[in-house]
């Protein structure tokens, strides 16, 4: 145990995800030895993230205004919405530069064993966005794991009567991987989703 402020800092750092007691101690002593200007920048960044950042009222993504940058951008395709679990997924898809529509962040996935049901996600808000008929395609980009697949199944059933094009991201082999290491479910999905190669 250290005295006062140092121990308080170690305790606070230790509450962060993925930071154990040893890591917390290392970071605390790094900060203690760091340039005061560097520490001030870190403090400002922490304060501002809590003060400025909120959730976009349209899509639920993190934003610094009422609406996020993507929802405000008139060049984005208004006819397609890509449904993701978390804001992190928006960043991952944006990096691909393949999608020019808008997003909807659910805030998680349906997980009965964790007590998370459809009412705990932003599904009502998604349905409200689809009311005016401007959206013609909904892309379900939830994680390709059990919870993500079940959430996609639930949404597909819910959106079925709305006469929209409801699509799901393809599953298959990771680029750069070895076929022999692919598990049976992934390889099976890759076969299901195989495509024709034009000569």
């Amino acid at each position: 145990m250290y005295e006062g402020a140092v121990q308080d800092l170690i305790d606070e750092l230790g509450r962060l995800p993925g930071v154990g007691p040893k890591s917390a101690q290392r970071i605390a002593f790094h900060l203690l030895a760091a340039n005061p200007a560097d520490v001030r920048r870190l403090v400002d960044a922490l304060t501002q993230v809590k003060e400025k950042v909120r959730f976009c009222r349209v899509c639920g993504n993190v934003a610094e205004a009422e609406e996020c940058r993507i929802c405000r951008d008139p060049r984005r395709d208004q006819a397609s919405i890509c449904v993701v679990e978390e804001s992190k997924d928006v960043v991952a898809i944006e990096k691909t530069r393949e999608f020019r529509g808008r997003y909807h962040v659910l805030g998680g996935a349906i997980s009965p064993i964790e007590g998370i049901g459809p009412d705990d996600l932003r599904i009502r808000e998604l349905l409200a966005r689809l009311q005016d008929g401007a959206v013609t395609e909904v892309i379900l980009a939830t994680d390709p794991n059990l919870e993500g697949e079940a959430t996609a199944t639930y949404l597909a059933r819910l959106l079925g009567p709305l006469r929209l094009r409801v699509t799901r991201l393809a599953s298959g082999l990771p680029v750069g991987g070895d076929l022999e290491y692919a598990d049976e479910v992934t390889l099976g999905r890759a076969f299901e989703g195989r495509r024709l190669l034009e000569a």
Binding site: P112, L146, E149, T153, Y154
Partner: peptide
């Protein structure tokens, strides 16, 4: 893998929720 029950349950929402209750 011996049986990928989960992957088969995910396509049927009522069966998926019942499966989760079996596991819990």
């Amino acid at each position: 893998t011996l049986d990928a029950f989960g992957a088969r349950l995910a396509g049927d929402y009522p069966a998926h929720t019942a499966g989760a209750a079996v596991l819990e």
